[in-house]
């Protein structure tokens, strides 16, 4: 390397050594973070006691009700379902409701209901069947 090149290298690397950390630190400090916001739609609270709990990797089901029997099916979906649609049916093929996003769902249910089926009508597939 000739001496003028060495001088140029020294200049460049001192510049990089000063400017680069400065710019990088600035960029890191000013990294935006995603702001939290409460949901606009509110799922109503429930006060019914839990009669039975069923848990799996995908969801947690709480059957809530009184001494007369179960009245409400509370379904906590842990991860979003990987299906274009998901309809919850009771054991008499009545529609209880739809699920999709992770979160809490509450459906009124007959005390005599023995099982629920979650189906995807768009793809015509059964996602899962749960005995209660």
């Amino acid at each position: 390397m000739i001496s003028s090149q060495r001088k140029r290298h020294r200049f460049i690397w001192v510049m990089i050594g000063v400017l680069l950390p400065l710019l990088v630190v600035l960029a890191v400090l000013r990294t935006p973070s995603f702001p939290y916001s409460e949901k606009a739609e509110i799922v109503a609270e429930t006060s019914l006691p839990i009669l039975k709990e069923i848990e799996s990797d995908l969801f947690k089901i709480n059957l809530r009700g009184t001494s007369d029997g179960a009245e409400e099916l509370e379904l906590l979906l842990k991860v979003p379902l990987k299906s274009p649609s998901a309809v919850v049916f009771d054991d008499q093929q009545n529609v209880l409701g739809q699920i999709g996003a992770s979160g809490v769902y509450r459906f009124p249910i007959r005390p005599a209901n023995k099982a629920i089926t979650i189906k995807d009508p768009i793809k015509n597939q059964i996602i899962t069947e749960i005995k209660l």
Binding site: P84, S85, N94, V95, K119, P121, I122, K123
Partner: peptide, 27 residues
């Protein structure tokens, strides 16, 4: 995938498909 439904244009174009009795989805 084939989906059957009714077209709606507002606010943006979507297809309302009936999944089951009393359950529909806006695609």
């Amino acid at each position: 995938t084939e989906v059957e439904g009714v077209l709606h244009l507002t606010p943006y174009p979507f297809l309302r498909t009936t999944l089951a009795d009393g359950a529909s989805k806006d695609i």
